[in-house]
């Protein structure tokens, strides 16, 4: 009898502890378990990706059981202009990305030449969402990339000016579809993105114009080579519409180096060329971006 009751005690005790014990291995909210650099860096529009292109990646260091956050600041020195952007992103379960970015475009001396005043700044807010539909950048079949679709709502803060230069609207929305895959056998990451957009100079000069009011299909391509798990070099190309009658817009491209200094900090340096901006041709120069991600 004592033996039997002892057994029952243990069983009942186990039952009790199973009922009342908190989940022993509850996942932390910020699990930080993503492989380094597979969250991408923050593109100039705030969505995770390369510098110029939005990729299928989801921001933050979380995996499919947690939440991640990242913040970035980017500076670009062009021939005649200065660019500064910053933003924050939240990644939820490596599935949904929500981001906000602010772009500040300094016209410097060109501002005076354009009659805006020296150092006139164009500013823009970008609210974006991206959802991963299928696949994984690293795992699974090499034939199945990570595929995401996104929406980027852009609001120029210079409505009167952008309409004066011929833009049809001061607000616009881009739609993106991206496929990203790391081909481990070659240490090469490839991204391809299709974007429906009518943004002029990413939206800083408004949306649509005399040449074209509606969105057109544009392409963003990125190729990157992994030198180490934390060091990647690559290049990007992005086509853009030329909607405004008064100023031609060119395709943009860059060459970049991204270095994950730690699991949570990534520094990117790039040579970027955006062509002609507001009649001033040959706008190229250096980009530096710093991202913290958890």
């Amino acid at each position: 009898m004592p033996k039997l009751s002892f057994k029952l005690n243990i069983l009942a005790g186990l039952g009790l502890s199973l009922l009342t014990a908190p989940a022993a291995y509850a996942d932390p909210l910020l699990d930080g378990g993503k492989l380094v650099l597979t969250n991408g860096i923050s593109s100039i529009e705030g969505a995770s990706g390369g510098g110029l292109a939005s990729w299928a990646t989801i921001a933050g260091m979380e995996t499919d059981r947690g939440v991640g956050v990242s913040a970035h600041v980017t500076g670009i020195e062009l021939s005649d202009y200065g660019w500064q952007s910053h933003g924050i992103s939240v990644g939820i379960k490596d599935r949904l990305e929500l981001s906000y970015a602010r772009q500040n475009f300094d016209t410097r001396k060109v501002g005076a030449a354009l009659g805006l005043g020296e150092g006139y700044r164009f500013n823009q807010d970008i609210f974006a969402a991206k959802v991963r539909l299928m696949g994984d950048t690293v795992y699974g079949s090499p034939l199945l990339p990570q595929i995401s679709v996104g929406v980027q709502h852009k609001r120029s803060l210079d409505a009167a000016i952008v309409k004066a230069v011929g833009a049809a609207a001061s607000e616009g929305t881009d739609f993106t579809a991206s496929a990203t895959k790391l081909f481990l056998s070659k240490s090469v990451l490839v991204n391809a993105t299709a974007r429906l957009t009518n943004a002029n100079q990413f939206g800083l000069l408004g949306f649509g114009g005399a040449n074209q009011t509606d969105r057109t299909l544009q392409f963003e391509g990125s190729v990157a080579y992994m030198l180490t798990p934390r060091l990647v070099v690559g290049g990007e190309y992005r086509t853009r519409p030329s909607n405004l009658a008064i100023a031609r817009e060119d395709d943009a491209h860059d060459l970049f180096v991204a270095w994950a200094v730690t699991r949570n900090a990534t520094v990117t340096a790039a040579y970027a060329d955006v062509g002609s901006v507001a009649t001033f041709d040959g706008q190229r120069g250096g980009l530096v971006s710093l991202q913290f991600a958890f």
Partner: peptide, 11 residues
């Protein structure tokens, strides 16, 4: 095992 566990193993 979770995805994060696999990533840790890969590292």
């Amino acid at each position: 095992t979770t995805r994060a566990d696999l990533n840790a193993l890969v590292e």
